Simulated assay, not measured.
Amino acid sequence: MTETLLLVIFIVAVAFIFDFTNGFHDAANAIATSVATRALTTRQALTMAAVMNFIGAFLGTGVAETIGGGIIHIPDAETAHVGLAIVLGALAGAIIWNLITWWFGLPSSSSHGLIGGLAGAGLVGALTVHWDVILDKVVIPMVLSPVVGFVLAYLVMKILLAFLANASYKPTMRRFRHLQTISAAAMALGHGLQDAQKTMGVVVLALVAGGYHEPGDSGIPNWVKIGAALAISLGTYSGGQRIMKTLGQKIIDLDPARGFAAEGVAAGVLYTTAFVWAAPISTTHTITSAIMGVGATRRRSAVRWSVAGNIVTAWVLTIPASATIAAAVTWLLLQVIPA
Score class of each variant (00 low, 15 high):
Val307Arg: 07
Tyr154Pro: 04
Thr284Asn: 11
Leu179Val: 07
Thr4His: 09
Thr283Val: 05
Ala231Cys: 05
Val224Lys: 04
Gly293Tyr: 05
Leu99Pro: 09
Met292Glu: 01
Asn310Gln: 14
Pro146Met: 10
Pro338Arg: 15
Trp102Arg: 00
Ala278Lys: 14
Thr4Cys: 12
Ala165Ser: 13
Val156Ile: 13
Trp102His: 01
Leu193Ile: 10
His81Ala: 13
Gly192Ser: 09
Leu6Tyr: 15
Gly240Glu: 00
Val156Gly: 03
Gly268Val: 11
Trp97Phe: 07
Ile55Thr: 14
Gly190Glu: 01
Thr246Pro: 05
Ala162Pro: 05
Ile182Pro: 01
Ser238Arg: 13
Ile86Tyr: 08
Trp277His: 15
Ala266Asp: 02
Trp131Asn: 05
Ala13Asp: 04
Ala196Ser: 11
Leu91Arg: 03
Ile243Phe: 01
Met142Lys: 04
Gly83Glu: 00
Thr33Arg: 01
Val148Arg: 01
Asp76Leu: 08
Leu247Trp: 07
Val276Trp: 10
Leu127Val: 10
Leu317Ala: 15
Leu99Lys: 10
Pro320Phe: 09
Thr2His: 12
Tyr154Glu: 01
Leu7Met: 14
Phe104Trp: 11
Thr324Phe: 12
Ile182Arg: 04
Thr42Val: 14
Ala90Asp: 00
Glu78His: 11
Leu6Asp: 13
Leu179Glu: 00
Gly240Ser: 03
Tyr271Lys: 09
Gly293Trp: 04
Leu334Phe: 10
Val312Phe: 10
Phe176Thr: 06
Leu207His: 04
Tyr271His: 09
Asp195Arg: 13
Ala49Gln: 07
Arg175Met: 10
Gly69Met: 05
Pro75Glu: 06
Tyr154Gln: 06
Gly239Trp: 02
Leu207Trp: 06
His73Tyr: 06
Leu106Asp: 00
Gly70Lys: 08
Val208Cys: 02
Gly201Thr: 11
Leu160Lys: 11
Gly264Trp: 07
Leu161Gly: 11
Phe260Thr: 12
Gly68Lys: 03
His213Cys: 00
Ile9Met: 15
Asn29Ala: 07
Tyr169Ile: 14
Val336His: 14
Leu189Asp: 06
Thr236Ala: 03
Val138Phe: 12
Thr37Trp: 02
Gly117His: 01
Ile281Glu: 00
Ile291Pro: 04
Gly264His: 04
Leu135Ile: 13
Ala39Asn: 02
Ala28Phe: 10
Arg258Gly: 09
Ile71Val: 12
Leu135Gly: 06
Glu263Asn: 14
Thr284Gln: 07
Glu263Lys: 08
Val143Lys: 08
Arg175Asn: 07
Gly192Thr: 11
Thr61Leu: 04
Val316Ile: 15
Pro256Ile: 02
Val312Asn: 02
Leu91Asp: 02
Lys158Ala: 13
Gly201Ser: 14
Ser233Asp: 03
Gly190Asp: 04
Asp26Thr: 11
Ala323Val: 13
Arg242Lys: 13
Asn53Asp: 05
Gly293Ser: 05
Gly83Asp: 00
Leu161Ile: 14
Leu247Cys: 08
Ser34Gly: 14
Ala326Glu: 02
Phe10Pro: 06
Val8Pro: 06
Val336Lys: 13
Leu189Lys: 09
Ala153Glu: 03
Phe54Thr: 00
Ile281Ser: 01
Ser109Lys: 03
Ile11Met: 10
Leu144His: 08
Tyr169Gln: 12
Ala15Trp: 03
Gly216Met: 11
Val51Gln: 03
